[in-house]
Design a protein around this nucleic acid. Sequence first.
DNA 1: CTGAAAGCGCTAACAT
DNA 2: ATGTTAGCGCTTTCAG
Lengths: 337, 337
Amino acid sequence: MVGIEDVAAAAGVSTATVSRAIRGLPRVSPKTRARILETAKELGYVPSSSASRLASGKTRTIGVLAPYVDRWFFGKAIAGVDEELHGKGYNLSLFHLGGRTAPRERLFSRAMVHKQIDAILLLCMYLHPEEIDDLHAIEMPLIVIGGPVPGCPNVGIDDYRAARTITEYLIGLGHRHISLLHGQDDSDLNFSVPKIRMEGFQDAVTAAGLELHPDASFYGNFTVESGIEAMRKFLELPEPRPTAMVCASDEMALGALFEARRRGVRVPEELSIVGIDGHEMGAAVGLTTVWQDPLAQARRGTQMLLAELAGEVGAVHSETAEQRLVVRESTAPPSHG
Amino acid sequence: MVGIEDVAAAAGVSTATVSRAIRGLPRVSPKTRARILETAKELGYVPSSSASRLASGKTRTIGVLAPYVDRWFFGKAIAGVDEELHGKGYNLSLFHLGGRTAPRERLFSRAMVHKQIDAILLLCMYLHPEEIDDLHAIEMPLIVIGGPVPGCPNVGIDDYRAARTITEYLIGLGHRHISLLHGQDDSDLNFSVPKIRMEGFQDAVTAAGLELHPDASFYGNFTVESGIEAMRKFLELPEPRPTAMVCASDEMALGALFEARRRGVRVPEELSIVGIDGHEMGAAVGLTTVWQDPLAQARRGTQMLLAELAGEVGAVHSETAEQRLVVRESTAPPSHG
DNA sequence: CTGAAAGCGCTAACAT
DNA sequence: ATGTTAGCGCTTTCAG
């Protein structure tokens, strides 16, 4: 295998010069650099990343910690990191956070992770207190995309406002009895996107002088299936049923919407349904939602990490991402006034 | 930072023994191993992956080359690799193949990639001849998931049969005039999933003595949006229009289905629509399709790579994945007989 | 079963 | 602008 020494010998220079030339560092004369680059190409030289990692202490890879990769938000975010990294000589390593598994295991694997990356981009919905502590202990640029993590910079939308906005929109339409499909299970995590969205909903309802109907609240796990399941339960509710349903995500809203129509419930005439996210399918079926762009959020976060790694201290900081109420055809005033 | 020497000193052994003990290699007495493991934990020792990569020549990372990450098939497949790798001490590095960009650039980045991984899992739909050659030149376990790549082992469904099956199902229902929404653009790549599915469709049609209607053929890029777009064009077709449409993917079929209903076209009464894939949303809306499981396919492929890396020669080989016609409510006999 | 020592291939001072 | 020379922290023969 051709190494840096071969190139150095062939080009008649030292390995140090070859190293500088190839990495585009200064202190190499243009003509020397050109010659080195050419011989390197001729010899088919490719630097050993292992060796350069060890020698430099930099891995030139960004670690993306995610609980899922086959879900809308996470897929878009990972794509965003990838796009931003592309062509910049950085690699993307994917680490499974493990949905809601024991924190103990998560911490352990995290220790192994640190040595392999230069910075972390965290995607998550839930985080246990001890995990947060662990995160703070890491000496490494870190940005979280999406939900807030106390003490960590993040880029994401204001989830409370998103939930409140969409709920108030429904109330403004005349709905007085609104069902909620949230993404929170019975854990007591305080700083989680599902919890925050739920609060936004609740505050909007009570602020309007309306009542919360615990029996018309359903749990989902952000999947289409859970939306379907929730709608089934909803339809078993005694009349009069709520005239609208706000779902904590578009994926669940879509499931609910499909199931409602399948059961012959007319949307929005008999039931208004809304989501949060901006899923492409939502646009296709006319789902009213609060749009956000996780891909852009992840790109922004990645830019910050890269800037920080490039020496720009303070480059990583919290930033609120764009969100927008998008009214489509899944909402209408309640039919019975 | 605590290194292997610190552990060796604290445990009163040599670094070689620590290395063996920690990696679970033989030739270490049980009690010595226990003592080493304990002191390592006490000291909070974590091996430097950079150093071990350089010294061993193994990176313990699987490279996943994919053109997209935020699309159903690819997201599921990446999740599958991740699941299979989990807990086995292997990392997953994601490399963007770059949709249909210039092969030249793809080759270049591929050279950089090789030094960073021990095996490759390739996800793709299109591959240029020179890229295939390049792939063959790689001395590294390789498996492709999904579409076939000449000369490379792959695990995936029989796309020709999938397309043919679904088309014949429609024909069996009585449809004589069928529209096609395929995923092929005007390139001339021969071995690509889009092309193969198109052939399955065409052969089914002609074998039944029916005619191909080029004007009722549409191009899509596997996204929901392209399905919507195709349906718009379809609806501009002069009457009598085809009574059924087969789409090369569920995502496109879903887009077509939504747009059709939005325009007031009743599915399946006036128009039958089918897809291929088994997307969760398809189940939710009752889309007839040929189901497949990319997550399982990727897991299987990853298992093979891992086995091969473990020394099991011949572990990597082609395998045809499970597929199944799933009849739901988006299909019915043509209404006008 | 355990230790000594020679690298793995590059980077980063420090010199020149 | 370029060369010299130590390592980076672990793995791996080869001895013992």
